[in-house]
Design a protein around this nucleic acid. Sequence first.
DNA 1: TCAAAAGTGTTATCCTTACACCCATGT
DNA 2: ACATGGGTGTAAGGATAACACTTTTGA
Lengths: 326, 326
Amino acid sequence: MTLSVVIGLSAVTVAVRNGEAVVLTVRPHDAVTDRATTLPGLPSGPFHPEGHRTFEIALRAFVTEQTGFDLGYVEQLYTFGDKGRDAPRAEVGAGAARVVSVGYLALTPAAVDTDGLDTAWAPWSRFFPWEDWRQGRPTLIDEAIAPALRRWAGRDESRIARARLLFALDGAGWNEERVLDRYELLYEAGLAPEAARDQSRDRGEDAIEPRALSAALGEPMLSDHRRILATGLGRLRGKLKYRPVVFELMPAEFTLSALQRAVEAIAGVPLHKQNFRRVVERIDLVEGLGRMDTETGGRPAELFRFRRELLTQRPAGGLSLPLLRD
Amino acid sequence: MTLSVVIGLSAVTVAVRNGEAVVLTVRPHDAVTDRATTLPGLPSGPFHPEGHRTFEIALRAFVTEQTGFDLGYVEQLYTFGDKGRDAPRAEVGAGAARVVSVGYLALTPAAVDTDGLDTAWAPWSRFFPWEDWRQGRPTLIDEAIAPALRRWAGRDESRIARARLLFALDGAGWNEERVLDRYELLYEAGLAPEAARDQSRDRGEDAIEPRALSAALGEPMLSDHRRILATGLGRLRGKLKYRPVVFELMPAEFTLSALQRAVEAIAGVPLHKQNFRRVVERIDLVEGLGRMDTETGGRPAELFRFRRELLTQRPAGGLSLPLLRD
DNA sequence: TCAAAAGTGTTATCCTTACACCCATGT
DNA sequence: ACATGGGTGTAAGGATAACACTTTTGA
């Protein structure tokens, strides 16, 4: 019996709904009690070399199958292969297999609810509550994260420096892109419930999915899905700034405020209204339609559309983030 | 017999030598005639789930084994899984296996020659001659690439637009980062020798490595290695601008001109001397040593060092590229 | 009339670009 | 002295950040 390799494909599917960034999750429910039986996870499945011509085709099929949802924009994120962080060993044919995770990022303008009870659009702040700085610095950081990290770091200068840099302690600046590094630091410090679970499995204990783990530092997810989600959020936040990807999250027609709320929801920081508009104007990728949206609650706002046709004519950059200091 | 999966790990190892960007290649030689028996390839090997704890550990071992070289900075690039673009099917245990490629980028300051005859530092302009714009627009583009692409595109507007955008035709601007897209366009247009090879293998013909392929549009490489190399070059060119990665390519002490030549060699574009210096000064990551390098051929140049210790204190950006229009 | 959100004007500062010129060494 | 590369000054234009204010709707 040889240990072979199984490739797990997972999708981080992002949308913006009511000014909240949400991600598509699956959570198997008990048919009788209608209660969730396990942690939530990302739509995912194993790559079959016989049937699947490419990873992306296989991934799209998994998502549609499991959520009823059709993906639009898709890009590959990262491939995780380290032992002890993988999904529980899969059984394949004669023997066991090591699972390697290939994560994907998908963007979609429509966050419609599908009928499957097992599917849900979850705000990602549930999994990473420390990542939302739109209402200012989350109190969670100073009240829970910083003390716990300091306990873990002890006198280790390099640990202290990492914590300071990543969680903006002692006056250091917040870098919204480093989502994965922050999650990995918490994992390493034993502050992510997944760490304890992976360790107990590594010690040969049975791979039980722990149901009642503390959700204080963000809700845990199945397998290594929270790590993949962190990778996706980080990538998306970075990409916003150098590629016009926000528009993949917008409907055909939108107001500039809605666009700003979408960027803020992704980046997790508040932006300066007028300077944001200037930035949008400068990249010259939207076009006013002359029509108004009267549902805004105040003065009606002009509707705009994304001039997608320009992308084939010239390389286009993203939106710089004019921060609103408050 | 089931078709299983083998994960191939490959490294794009980059260094700068005499103002040229070079990449570490292996090319098996015939022991008797001392002539190369196949195309050059990247150092690579199959991931073993039993033995290897992480991809990166396995990769480092392969490179050391095959080239005698120890890697420093390493980052993952991309995982290629599409059928027909993979390496020839590997034989594993009972059956055949589909090969999936995980590419890595490694950076190193030392481009020392190792003794192995099979190893060579090759300038990457050999594989992508159209990517070097330091001496102005390469004539190869207008003389060979553009006509061939136009023949291939015919009346297809989307093909014409892609060719124009990627190869800066008809006055469009050159985007040095899109190395992979350019290679993929040439592959799709049948202008990369690898395309013909992969197709003949797909038709069931024997997987011969063709030895005498035209090198007009860049020398071909083994398997999908030129695609991985293109991914690495593109990633590195992008990263230069937002992370201080050039310094991974520099020795402990260097002159500012040497730094500029390194950036130019990677980015493939000429830079404006004084503005480059201003940019370097502004990011404030180098420190003058007060000592001089007298080997410059003109006035001695001051030696500088990279203040690596700052990286743990603050997040650091890269160098913007102040182009020299000429 | 007032709350709520849309939309505009203006300035100081900093960064980038684009000029042209002087300096120290080896031959 | 002169060729070769090292190193500097400065001004224009553009982008960003930081101010506060007007406009148009619905309740």
